[in-house]
Design a binder for these strands. Structure first.
Lengths: 236, 236
DNA sequence: CCAACATAGTGTAAATATAACGTAAAGTAT
DNA sequence: ATACTTTACGTTATATTTACACTATGTTGG
């Protein structure tokens, strides 16, 4: 094979698993592809990256087209490069995940999509996705699980004001196990990155909970010690 | 820009930071580039990946050309894709690291290299490397540090038979901090993945230490519990 | 042969972190 | 006013982590 046929003949894409927390469920955004290849199949939002576009710009573009918003928390996870993973030629893809508060944004089917919808993560993991997207989803969810135990990224998924119970539920959904209420509160509060507000939950049919806010400044200021650890042993 | 100029006009490479442990130093293999681009500068071994070659095959090839051996422990770390990172066009690179026992193999300057040599990691981190290889080296070293605390990959860098002191030194070099001897031994032995041999160190001018061997079967058999943790607090 | 040297090998106690657990208080709905 | 639902909260037992110093075993050199 000649040099020019062997190299500089490939393309690369970014795929972005967008996680969202909607009141009481952890969800992931999937699109129904509106164009070939894999037209009609479910997939993670993603797109080819142009040769004069950085990876991050590519992800930003995909996010903009999918949830119409930029500046989300995002993280690169893994690069998938199976030779035959894409029907149109050699396309390797760099997988990212991003975190959104579902209520904040409106979905807009991206140019490459026929439709876009939120699926509960557990459900999405069972669906058949196009390309190698099942593998990608799994890798990203795994990474999220790890990350959530070493940095307070949970807040990226919540509205500005939230209750400790909401926060705990979110962690339980991500970690897929129950946490002890008192221990959770103790641990979270001991991090000293939450500001309690003089405000309570409204419209609930029971004792309303105090609202809290994530204090980004305090978080940045603190030197990050070891990982968090939510009842790793017995509840597992 | 037309579609065909925008996509399928890029290339991708793999770069592989090869870590080696040589008696008493943690080293990394660097090459002096023998071809353009960046001819003459120091760099991490790597090469373009052909369009019908998988990423892993690409890394294997680079490893073969560099240390003449395959089947090393390796791990993907991160993908670097700055638009202008490569002078010849759009080339994104997928960074891996690999672990070798330096004594086992002979270096062979790869086709793309003028020479190849082991550098102490601390020194290599200070050198000016070609492309964005400083960044890559840092990312890989960081990843190694993390990984060594959650899986017993240290053994990949040691000869089959080793002493606990050698193992401890290796961990100290990777983690860049001192570890307590008794606590280290306690922890490592409690993992129950080392087989003590009826054999002692030879040719040392002091009391010879007992030799141990990593028991891969036992390791595989055991369900991996939480991370290891080497005196995280006070010695730091 | 013996003294000097160098590293191997070993245990315990104190401090800290994690895990388990139940009850009273504050709202809402009827 | 009663039933209902969820909030809020502290203590004890257990497990893990950290700190710390001396004797044993070999080699080397005089």
């Amino acid at each position: 094979m000649k040099f020019e046929d062997q190299y500089f003949k490939s393309a690369f894409s970014v795929d972005c698993v967008i996680f969202g927390f909607d009141t009481n469920a952890l969800k992931v955004l999937l699109i129904r592809r509106g164009a070939e290849p894999m037209k009609g199949s479910l997939a993670i939002p993603g797109d080819l990256v142009s040769i004069n576009e950085s990876l991050e710009q590519g992800v930003e573009r995909v996010l903009n087209q999918s949830v119409g918003i930029s500046n989300l928390y995002m993280e690169q996870v893994y690069t998938f490069g199976r030779v035959d993973r894409h029907p149109d030629g050699r396309v390797i893809t760099i997988a990212y995940y991003a975190l959104v508060n579902v209520r904040d944004y409106k979905l807009s089917a991206a140019s490459f999509a026929e439709s876009a919808d939120w699926y509960p993560v557990s459900e999405a993991l069972e669906l058949e996705l196009g390309f190698d997207h099942n593998e990608i989803l799994q890798a990203c969810f795994g990474q999220l699980k790890l990350k959530v135990q070493s940095a307070p990224i949970g807040f990226e998924l919540l509205p500005k004001k939230f209750t400790l119970s909401q926060l705990q539920l979110l962690y339980e959904l991500i970690l897929e196990r129950d946490l002890d209420k008192r221990n959770f509160r103790k641990k979270i509060l001991s991090l000293d990155i939450l500001t309690p507000l003089n405000e309570k939950q409204k419209g609930v049919a029971h004792r309303p909970a105090k609202l809290y806010q994530f204090d980004e400044e305090k978080y940045r200021a603190m030197k990050i010690v070891g990982g968090l650890n939510f009842d790793a042993k017995k509840n597992s």
